[in-house]
């Protein structure tokens, strides 16, 4: 184990999260199991009062877990000087890949679920009689399980860091000629793929932003009938955009921003570029917004929330448009000035 300030913060957040997560999980389970459709108003009020504390706890817990994602990478970055062979965060992930790799997939899922739950929580609070209380608590039950798993994972990562481990440099993965990020586009686009990836990056981002802005501006999100169709198209475009952006970052953007034409490691951006965390965060928030908006329409539909839903869907879309635009602007500035 490597102990530094970041390890202590990571462990502190993890332990707090496990305790709060367990309390939230049990409370949510008890309330959901007692919640009956035909219960009396008194019984319902009593359960809602009990739920109040659980929900406050959940908001604190989920807030902590949302900022945990960047802290996780900052902590991994702080281990670089202590691990032989590690030049960047990728090298640190090779100390315990069996634990860290699944964690790298789990973190975005947890972040997405937390964001979705918080939006549902706000919508329910805005409505008059908490119409989404049962759904909200059931969803909280699921989120708590993910949060506890994520927190246990953080502890496992911290304890698996053996400073005596010798790892290989990221170049043996990202810079080999037959890396998947080069082979796949090469097989589709031919040997000129590198010239096409950057234009594709812009086209894909502009299509997504344009689509989101289009259905926002034309008021398509206000119409309940076809809203889900429009939102699912948004999710589909976002998924396509993620693939394009990943390829572009590995193949073109990272080498250009790092001033290393043959080095394709996106992890290096996090340690070498002072604002890389911001443009990645904006991109992730922008992409997740399409999913959150879709999730609002899927989960929060109720007679009482009818008037509210379109407003929240639109706000989420606007937030996504601004974030994606911000990320695109930042990368464009770096490509131009750098």
């Amino acid at each position: 184990m490597i102990i530094n300030a970041f390890t202590i913060i990571l462990l502190f957040f993890a332990v707090i999260s496990i305790v709060l997560g367990a309390v939230t999980l049990v409370s949510a389970f008890l309330i959901v199991s007692r919640w009956k459709r035909d219960m009396t108003n008194e019984r319902r009020t009593m359960l809602e009062k009990k739920a109040y504390l659980a929900l406050i706890l959940a908001v604190v817990l989920l807030g902590i877990r949302m900022i945990n994602w960047p802290i996780f990478y900052i902590t991994l970055g702080s281990y670089i000087p202590d691990i032989t062979g590690a030049m960047c965060i990728y090298g640190v992930t090779q100390v315990a890949p069996a634990i860290i790799k699944p964690m790298e997939f789990l973190k975005p899922v947890v972040f997405f679920l937390i964001g979705q739950w918080l939006i549902i929580y706000i919508i329910d609070k805005t409505a008059k009689s908490y119409p989404l209380m049962k759904k909200k608590l059931f969803f909280l039950l699921i989120v708590s399980i993910f949060v506890i798993a994520d927190s246990i994972g953080d502890i496992a990562v911290a304890f698996s860091m053996d400073p005596n481990t010798v790892v290989s440099c990221c170049t043996v993965v990202f810079d080999i000629a037959d890396r998947p990020s080069a082979m796949i586009p090469q097989s589709i686009l031919g040997p000129v793929y590198k010239n096409l990836i950057l234009p594709l990056y812009y086209v894909s981002n502009l299509i997504l932003i344009g689509y989101m802005a289009g259905i926002y501006g034309l008021g398509r999100l206000k119409v309940e009938d076809k809203r889900r169709l429009f939102l699912s198209i948004g999710v589909f475009l976002a998924v396509l955009n993620v693939i394009t952006v990943l390829l572009a970052v590995i193949e073109v953007i990272a080498p250009r921003l790092l001033n290393l034409p043959y080095h394709h490691d996106p992890y290096d951006l996090l340690t070498e570029m002072p604002d890389a965390g911001i443009f990645f965060a904006l991109f992730i928030l922008g992409i997740f917004s399409t999913g959150w908006a879709f999730g609002i329409d899927m989960i929060a539909r109720h007679d009482e929330t009818k008037g509210l839903l379109s407003g929240y869907v639109m706000k989420t879309y606007w937030f996504g448009i601004v974030c994606l635009l911000g990320s695109l602007l930042m990368i464009s500035i770096h490509l131009t000035i750098g």
């Binding site: 030049m87 440099c169 990221c170 170049t171 810079d175 921003l257 790092l258 001033n259 290393l260 034409p261 043959y262 080095h263 290096d268 070498e272 570029m273 002072p274 604002d275 911001i278 443009f279 904006l282 601004v322 635009l325 911000g326 602007l329 930042m330 500035i333 770096h334 131009t336 000035i337 750098g338």
Partner: peptide
């Protein structure tokens, strides 16, 4: 927000450009 973003990105890009360490062209 977008003006702030432009300022942050420009500052960061200029700072990065001013760093003149001798770095390996293969692994940095």
């Amino acid at each position: 927000f977008l003006i702030l973003i432009i300022a942050v990105a420009s500052g960061s890009a200029i700072y990065k450009k001013s760093q003149r360490f001798e770095k390996c062209d293969f692994d940095g």
